[in-house]
């Protein structure tokens, strides 16, 4: 499979070229356009993998759709264009057997060799991170596509790094993740608007997004007419 990311970074879309027999699993609604030689299948499970309805339900709570779309090319050189609903960037992450934890709404598509599981990160962490109660755990090998609100920037963490909860896109599971207060005093953390933040420690790569969907929503929400 070959890929190219178009219209970066404001309105990115990924153009994938698949050969006969190759397939990719996408978030429902991610398909923008495709050539005619695709077989599309909608299931609650990974292609050829286990999980089924339970994993599907977990994904639903993770902010993802219950269903997944599998696109399998039946002819050579088929192109598929996918993109997220939000304005923002897309990145390609080649998985080589490790595990990447992806924030609920940032998972866009993955090759069939990747197992997708919505993992529960523990009550305290989920409650205070606020942004997304669940995280999608991707493991295996193959191509993985992630999307973001705003630009994506990678951070290679060695030691400790602090991220505001709305800005996390994904992180390698070699990183330990803990909720903490932003400044030394708890009162200051809240008054200063930073509230609780995620603290990563260990060694590994972390992907952050430049913009924060809840902050944007907080600004726009009051200006919208009531429904």
């Amino acid at each position: 499979m070959q890929y190219e990311i178009l219209a970066r970074p404001a309105a990115s879309a990924a153009r994938l070229t698949l050969q006969a027999g190759e397939s990719i699993t996408c978030e429902v609604g991610a398909m923008i356009a495709m050539s005619s030689g695709f077989n599309v299948e909608t299931t609650t499970r990974n292609k050829g993998g286990g999980g089924g309805i339970v994993k599907g339900l977990k994904r639903m709570f993770a902010g993802e759709n219950l269903f997944l779309n599998h696109f399998t090319a039946t002819q050579p050189n088929q192109t598929l264009i996918i993109g997220p609903g939000l304005l923002g960037d897309i990145i390609h992450y080649p998985m080589r057997g490790g595990t990447l934890i992806v924030q609920g709404s940032s998972w866009l598509a993955s090759a069939t060799g990747i197992d997708i599981d919505a993992t529960w990160q523990g009550l305290g962490k989920a409650l205070f991170s606020g942004e997304s109660m669940f995280w999608v755990k991707c493991s295996g090998a193959g191509d993985l596509f992630l999307n973001s609100f705003g630009a994506i920037y990678p951070v290679d963490v060695t030691g400790q790094y602090v991220v505001d909860t709305g800005h996390i896109v994904a992180f390698e599971d070699s990183l330990e993740f803990r909720i903490g207060k932003a400044s030394k005093s708890l009162v200051g953390s809240f008054l200063g608007g930073e509230g609780l933040v995620c603290k990563f420690s260990g060694q590994g790569r972390l992907y952050c997004q430049s913009h924060n969907p809840p902050s944007f929503g907080k600004l726009l929400g009051p200006k919208l007419k009531p429904r």
Partner: peptide, 9 residues
């Protein structure tokens, strides 16, 4: 306030 996206610890 709330401008911080991420930072070193």
């Amino acid at each position: 306030a709330d401008a911080m996206a991420s930072m070193s610890s």
